[in-house]
Structures are given as C-alpha cells and as structure tokens.
C-alpha cells in the first residue's frame, strides 16, 4: 500500500504541475482560479457522496458558511491567516453537529437529502433576512441580501499589507487543490477510507463487523464540509464579496450536476466535471441566443439517462477497452454500476 501511495502522490504532483504550467497559456488566470475553486467544491461532494454514500443536497451550505466565516473573521481580525483556518473549522464543526443529529438518528437515503437541503434553506433564509443594523458579528454587518463586501483579502501570513492576488492567487489556489487532492487520496487509501467505502456498499454488514458507522459517517461528512468551507473561503477571496446566493438551491444543484457529469466515485471526476461545466457556463454566458439554464438542464438529463457513471469513468473504460492490457480485475471494475466505483479510488 505504501508504495502505491507514494506513486499516487508523484503522479498527482507531476500532473498538477503540468496543468498549472500549461493552463494559463490558454485561459486567463482569473477564470482559472474560479474553475479550481469549483473543482475543490466538486471534490468535497464527490468524497462524501461518491465514497461515503451520503446523499447531500445541501453541499452549498458549507461552501457559503466557509465564505461567510472568512468574510466576517477577516473584517474583525484585519488579516487573513486565522480567518482561513476558521473558514475550514466552522463548517466542519457545523457539519459534525448536523451529522451527529442525522446519523445517530439513523436517517438514510432520501431523508438525508431532505435534511441537508432544508438546513441549507434555513441558512439561506436567515442570511437573507439579516439586512438590519442589529445583525452584527464583531465589526462585520451581515448585510442581508446585499452580502458583505470590502473585507481583507488573502495576504502573506504575518504581513497584512502584502496581498496575494492575480496570478499569485491562482498559484495559491492551484497548490491548495493539489494538496487537498493528495490528502483525499491518502484518506481513501487509509483504513478509514476503505471502511467508508464498505459502509457505502453495505451498512448493515459493516456495523455487524463492529464498526461504528454513525461516528464514521459523521467524521466523513465533516471532512467534506471542511473542504467545501476551504473552497468557500477561496471563493470569497476571489469574488471579494459574499452574498446569500452562495447558499442557494441553484448553487447546490450545480455542484451535483458537476459530480454527475464528471462521475462520482472517483477523485478526478468531480474536479474535471466542475471545472469543465463552469467553463462551458462562462462561455455560454457570453452569448444570449440560448438560455444558459436550459443547456445545463439538458446536460444533466442526458447524463443521467445515457452516462449515469459520468464522463471520467466512461473515458477510462473506453481507454481500457481500446488500449488497456487486460489485467484480472481490470475488466471487473468496468462492469460495476454507479455508486460502486473503484474502491481504491
């Protein structure tokens, strides 16, 4: 296991270095930054849904929570290091509390979807209604529908006047994504990750084997929220304003669409799904002939109907069929249905 992990890290580093070098030659770094942030957000849902089997319709809640935490903390502290940490910790704690409630109540399946969705809507409604001056945290006004503008953006740790922006910020985000990706890989290779996949496959069996599935699901859910929170904080830095639309149903829908198109149950699928679709959306936004939403809708329906495993697994399978040396087991992974993808990531 150890050997393949280091190989994994090497591959990740080489590929991401190549991408970080090559992509700015084609697309502006400003656009790339947001694509990377969405990729991280997609990865967070891919982790908990694809590998943990936790159906979460409200992943945007943690994204928004991370962004708001960062904005509020940045206004109060006047620098960005502690707010960045808080933006990871607060969503994680929030998700852990929610997870305690949901998983210890033995909620599964579509009921999880409802609760996560509802919690996101509660946050959305609450933040939307905080326009008045009485809603203040420290020096930061929550601002209701208008959101919070004008907070301190990312700076070099320890020097609040040295801002990181533009190209430099792109590299920061790209490195962050690579780091998160490596951490997720390590997590999935660890016994915790393999047990999580086991729980996805058969909860009863895993609990009969003596694993505390409730605690494990809660922890996994919380890790997913932490990643989404980090993505939210990076987003806040990129857009320099946070608004309640971060919590919206549309945002959550988009995250799910990214994962479906890219493919759940593998690590790169959600990232490429997110970046690819977000890029298509930006391109589509430049024309006004066909409505944007319509195309996203068609993409989702077509993928659910014809390619339910997603693009990346389908391409991988095609590659295996055309060029792959048929190993024992390699052909088996191709036949598995969705939500039961490669156990080792």
């Amino acid at each position: 296991m150890q050997g393949s992990m280091s190989k994994d890290v090497m591959t990740t580093l080489v590929v991401s270095a190549a991408l970080i070098w090559a992509l700015p030659l084609m697309v502006s770094t400003y656009t790339l930054t947001i694509l990377i942030i969405y990729g991280m957000l997609g990865l967070s849902l891919g982790l908990i849904w694809g590998f943990g089997g936790i159906i979460c319709f409200g992943q945007a809640a943690y994204f928004g929570l991370g962004a708001y935490t960062y904005a509020i903390a940045a206004i109060n502290f006047g620098e960005s290091t502690i707010p960045m940490l808080l933006a990871v910790i607060v969503p994680a704690i929030f998700a852990a509390l929610l997870g305690l409630m949901m998983f210890y109540g033995r909620l599964t399946d579509v009921y999880l979807g409802v609760i996560t969705l509802v919690v996101m809507l509660i946050l959305f409604k609450f933040i939307n209604s905080t326009a008045g001056p009485q809603y203040v945290i420290g020096n930061a006004r929550l601002g209701g529908y208008n959101g919070i503008p004008g907070f301190q953006t990312l700076n070099v740790p320890g020097d609040p006047s040295a801002y990181i922006w533009g190209d430099a910020y792109f590299y920061v985000c790209a490195v962050m994504l690579a780091l998160v990706f490596i951490l997720v890989s390590a997590l999935l290779r660890s016994s915790f990750g393999r047990i999580a996949v086991g729980i996805r496959e058969n909860e009863t069996r895993m609990s009969l084997m003596g694993y505390d599935i409730r605690a494990r699901k809660t922890i996994l859910f919380s890790i997913g929220a932490a990643i989404a929170g980090l993505a939210g904080a990076l987003f806040a830095n990129w857009s320099e304003i946070v608004t309640p639309s971060l919590f919206s149903l549309r945002q959550s829908a988009e995250i799910i669409i990214w994962c479906i198109v890219g493919g759940f149950s593998n690590r790169v699928g959600p990232i490429f799904g997110a970046a690819g679709l977000a890029y298509i959306k930006i391109l589509l936004g430049q024309q006004s002939m066909v409505d944007n939403t319509l195309i996203m809708g068609i993409i989702l329906v077509v993928f659910v109907l014809f390619l339910p495993k997603g693009l990346v697994p389908a391409v991988a399978e095609l590659w295996n069929i055309s060029f792959g040396r048929r190993k024992r087991g390699a052909s088996r992974s191709g036949r598995r249905v969705r939500n039961r993808g490669k156990a080792n990531g």
Binding site: A253, T293, M296, G297
Partner: peptide
C-alpha cells in the same frame, strides 16, 4: 432536477 432547469430555460 435537470428537467426543472430545462423548463426554466424554455
């Protein structure tokens, strides 16, 4: 969900 986006678009 995809259909809902489709109808909104149309």
């Amino acid at each position: 969900w995809g259909l809902s986006l489709f109808f909104i678009g149309i």
